[in-house]
């Protein structure tokens, strides 16, 4: 199936899934954090920390799987700084998040000094036999690395957790009205810190996907703004997991498509086309948010507010 002459739609779909995976991982983590009523703008810092932690662990141990584990731990530990500052010491979340990004970029570069120009161990691709050979769909659905599947599973898991489980209910209660949740006996601070650490671990995984699979190498500043896009995707998705998947794939899709159009020699003004992913994201956002009531926007009511238990 071809569009614009020579671009194969199936191939485009397969490559946009790969392109979107780091953003998706970070976004789904941040979604949980925001559902708990916390706005962590430090996603970029946690991603880059995950990227170097994962890289270092994978290189030292020779195992990409351990690397991803290390990335999740690294991201979670960094996010714990944010958790303690905002939840225990009641610091402003926006400022702390930005500080976390600044710190993460510097810190990761310090750890990474010894890893420049090193090639990490390769992650085997998980081609599912028979199915991978299907024309079209086989390439899209069954010929990826395990992390791509993990990211989709994570979306499904978060969706089910928020919708059906008791944990999801508590999480939403804390995010909607922390005073009421506290009155009901939930440990607001503890729940929020756990959510923040989950977000940090996911962002770390997203960063490691870049440094271990997508690129794969370590260079300073290699996330190049992906964390900010992940934040945008969460709002874009109006805090719904499947929409976050859609948003990440849409963003990845437009980014990949503009490069494909260039490669196919379609005559387009390149310098303006590279703005298109951002402009189209804004446009879709406007369409989705217009003509709806505030409730439909689904923003957690306590988002970004500090919680201090009285009495």
């Amino acid at each position: 199936m071809d569009i614009f002459g020579s671009i194969n739609l199936w191939v485009l779909l397969a490559s946009l899934m790969v392109a979107a995976t780091p953003i998706l991982l970070a976004a789904i983590g941040e979604l949980v954090v925001e559902k708990a009523g916390v706005l962590n703008l430090g996603v970029e810092g946690m991603m880059i920390t995950g990227a170097i932690c994962g890289f270092a662990v994978a290189v030292e141990s020779g195992s990409p799987a351990l690397g991803f584990l290390g990335a999740a731990v690294g991201g979670a530990v960094l996010s714990l700084i944010f958790g303690v500052l905002t939840q225990v010491l009641l610091a402003n979340q926006v400022a702390t998040g930005l500080a976390l990004t600044l710190f993460g970029l510097g810190f990761s570069a310090l750890i990474g000094q010894g890893y420049i120009g090193v090639r990490p161990p390769a992650m085997p691709r998980l081609d599912i036999p028979v199915l991978a050979e299907l024309p079209g769909l086989g390439r899209v659905l069954f010929r990826h690395d395990v992390i791509v599947y993990l990211s989709i599973a994570l979306v499904a898991g978060v969706w089910a957790m928020l919708r059906y489980s008791r944990i999801g209910l508590i999480l939403r209660a804390v995010g909607e009205n922390h005073d009421a949740a506290h009155a009901l006996g939930y440990k607001v601070v503890r729940i929020r810190i756990l959510a923040i650490m989950f977000g940090g671990a996911c962002a770390g995984l997203g960063g490691a996907y870049l440094s271990l699979i997508r690129v794969p190498q370590w260079t300073e500043g290699m996330t190049a703004g992906a964390g900010w896009i992940a934040l945008a995707i969460v709002v874009f998705a109006s805090w719904r997991p499947w929409r976050a998947l859609l948003g990440a794939y849409l963003f990845g899709g437009i980014a990949v498509l503009q490069l494909n159009l260039q490669a196919a020699g379609v005559r387009i003004p390149v310098e303006y086309l590279s703005m298109s992913p951002y402009l189209i994201t804004i446009l879709v956002l406007v369409i989705m948010s217009s003509g709806r009531s505030r409730a439909a926007l689904n923003a957690p009511a306590s988002l970004g507010k500090s919680f201090h238990a009285q009495g």
Binding site: L85, A95, T96, A99, F103, G106, A109, L110, Q113
Partner: peptide, 18 residues
């Protein structure tokens, strides 16, 4: 290295906020 300076600025912010 400039990375250490960046981390240092991040620390300063953390402490101010804390």
């Amino acid at each position: 290295p400039s990375a250490a300076i960046q981390a240092f600025q991040g620390m300063l912010l953390f402490f101010l906020l804390a």
